[in-house]
Structures are given as structure tokens and as C-alpha cells.
Design a protein around this nucleic acid. Structure first.
Length: 317
DNA sequence: TTCCGACAGTGGGGTCGCAAT
DNA sequence: ATTGCGACCCCACTATCGGAA
């Protein structure tokens, strides 16, 4: 019997490009929501975000639901999501769920239990902790569910997940202990999108940054107008930042390449002639038609800017 | 000696609340 | 009424440093 710690840092997953070999991995859906750790002690529940912020007050309905389940004292680890009409987790809907005037049902998917009923389970293999979680949770409820392990070949799972428009798959080593840091025993396999965009401008660097801050990206629509789709500001090292800045300077212009009505919510913007093409990977299209989680992958010299179009409709999520 | 993990810094989209305009 | 800012959430990535391997 040990005392329940007041705080707990979550174990984080490492992004990988391909699934590992071997069968000592357990796979789950990668939920596109907020990580949430629940501390339950003597029927009271406290809810903490990944960075240790107490969000109990913002999640009253969930807190009540957890108390009603009468789970043993412990730390429970999972992710909160809001499902859209198609039953897929929607990050945007989750953000809107905190608007008190428009409450939406938040679902808490539990996947781990580092402490339970006076025991420190962190040293146990993952599958034993999950067995314990499944046991104490039972059928759960509409709002509190067990994140099931997925059956099947991992390549098929990834294919299905991406097909369904999910964010990806999480893999966890079945025998791993729970550690409060990013670990190689938890991996992220993401369904990222990738396409070329026209560079319409750039922003000034800030602080110790060299070259430029980010690139303004666009795609041509049917009418031949360059539509702004957001910025990309990561994926460059210092050398590339400086090198690219020189190229951009050589085509800088005072003429805004986007429609006059386009608002760019950025400071220190420079325009360039819309003729350079950047290849960018990104997580998804947001409801407002911008790219989320973008990373620069390189310049494309082989493709004329005029041919750059949006490759997937934003309406799919 | 090399490598890994932690931290800080820079950049992104988005929502909310609050203060300044 | 609008705009700007910071604090949160999600994140990718680079650069650096100290300690583990």
C-alpha cells in the first residue's frame, strides 16, 4: 500500500516512419484529442492535462461521470475526444466543446493505469496494467471507455486507419513499464498528408532565428487565384534558412500574390512572385481550409507553380 | 568516446478570455 | 465592435548540454 502521488507526468510516444517488426507490440487508435490524466482518491476526481494543468473545473461533467463509476483510487491515463457525425475524433469539435453555451459530449478513452488501489503498477508490463484497467473499468460508460487493442496485421491497421480519416495508430511494447517521459516503447504511426504548395511570401525571423520565420503557402483555385492555406515554419536547419532567404529575396515583390481580401495574421510579411514550389507534409486540413502540423520537406523544381492545386477536399474532416 | 534524453527556442493552427484600441 | 495578446491545447523540428552507456 503506497500513497498516491500528487502529480504524474505522462509517458509520451515517439514518432516513427514505419511499423516495427515483431509481435511484441500492441496497437491502439491514435485519438486526436487532449491527453488527460485522472487522479482518483476517495471518490474525488482531479483531471490534469499533459503539462500538469488542472482542468477539473473545465471538465465537470466528466468528473461527475468518473465519480459515478466508483473506480479504485489511482492514476488513470487516457485521451479525451469529441466524435463527429461519422464517429471520428475531431480535434476542432473538442476545442469547441469547452464553450459553455454549446456543450458537446466529451468521451474519455482510457488506455493505462499507472497506479491502482494502493499499488504502484508502473513496473508491471503494459499488458498487465491494461488487464487491470479493463478489470476495474468493466463496461465503463458512454463517456468513459476502454481504448481497445486492435487486432490484425499492423500494415493493414495503418491502411484502414488512414482510409477512415483517423490520425494514425499508436504502438506500445507489450512488456514495457510506465515511464514519465518520451519513450521508444510507445510509438506514433501517423497518417500524414503531403503535397506541393506555392510559396507566396515569407515572414521575418524572430529572436535567434536565421533567414526567415515561415513560408506563406497557397494553392491555385479553378479561377486561377492563389488561395492562402497557411504557413510552414519548421523543417529547416540554419543553413537552409539562410540559403532559402537568399532565393526568396531575389524574387521579392511589392505585389501581394493572394486575393486582396486575404488576411494574413502574421507580422513582418514579405511577398514573393508565386513561382517557387515547396513540398510540405501536414496532418490535416482544418475546417477553415488551412493546413495543420505542417513541416517543410524540400523545394520542388520539377513542377510549375501554376499546376499546384489542393489535392484533397477540406470537407473530408 | 559517443549517444541519448531533457530543455529551450522557434515555428505552425486553433479557441478562449481579457485589455487596449 | 474590432484587434491584439497571452494562455492553453495540439504539434514538428533544431540546437545545445550534461550524464549515461
Amino acid at each position: 500500500m503506497i500513497a498516491l502521488p500528487a502529480t504524474l507526468k505522462p509517458e509520451l510516444a515517439t514518432l516513427v516512419a514505419r511499423p516495427p517488426a515483431g509481435d511484441d507490440w500492441l496497437y491502439e487508435i491514435k485519438f486526436d484529442g487532449y491527453r488527460l490524466l485522472a487522479r482518483i482518491e476517495r471518490k474525488a476526481a482531479q483531471l490534469f492535462t499533459r503539462n500538469g494543468n488542472d482542468w477539473t473545473a473545465r471538465l465537470r461533467p466528466l468528473e461527475k461521470e468518473l465519480r459515478a463509476l466508483k473506480l479504485p483510487d489511482g492514476w488513470y491515463d487516457g485521451e479525451i475526444v469529441v466524435l463527429n457525425d461519422e464517429g471520428k475524433p475531431s480535434f476542432n469539435l473538442l476545442q469547441l466543446a469547452f464553450d459553455v453555451s454549446k456543450p458537446r459530449s466529451i468521451i474519455y478513452y482510457l488506455f493505462d493505469v499507472p497506479y491502482c488501489a494502493g499499488e504502484d503498477l508502473r513496473g508491471l508490463p503494459l499488458i498487465e496494467r491494461r488487464a487491470r484497467l479493463a478489470d476495474v473499468l468493466g463496461d465503463g460508460s458512454d463517456a468513459v471507455r476502454f481504448s481497445a487493442a486492435l487486432d490484425g496485421d499492423i500494415h493493414d491497421l495503418i491502411g484502414s486507419a488512414c482510409e477512415l480519416g483517423l490520425e494514425g495508430i499508436i504502438g506500445k511494447r507489450k512488456g514495457s513499464r510506465y515511464v514519465s517521459r518520451r519513450s521508444d516503447d510507445w510509438i506514433k504511426l501517423k497518417c500524414s498528408l503531403r503535397q506541393e504548395f506555392v510559396i507566396g511570401g515569407f515572414t521575418d525571423p524572430e529572436g535567434s532565428r536565421s533567414g526567415f520565420g515561415s513560408l506563406l503557402l497557397g494553392v491555385f483555385d479553378k479561377a486561377g487565384e492563389l488561395q492562402y492555406v497557411g504557413n510552414v515554419g519548421t523543417g529547416f536547419d540554419t543553413e537552409l534558412l539562410v540559403d532559402l532567404r537568399a532565393k526568396l529575396d531575389s524574387i521579392e515583390t511589392t505585389k501581394k500574390p493572394f486575393p486582396a481580401s486575404t488576411k494574413i495574421p502574421k507580422k513582418g510579411v514579405h511577398w514573393v512572385e508565386p513561382k517557387m514550389v515547396a513540398e510540405v507534409s501536414f496532418g490535416e486540413w482544418t475546417p477553415s481550409g488551412h493546413i495543420r502540423h505542417s513541416t517543410f520537406r524540400g523545394l520542388r523544381a520539377d513542377k510549375p507553380a501554376r499546376q499546384i492545386r489542393r489535392e484533397k477536399p477540406s470537407s473530408s474532416r
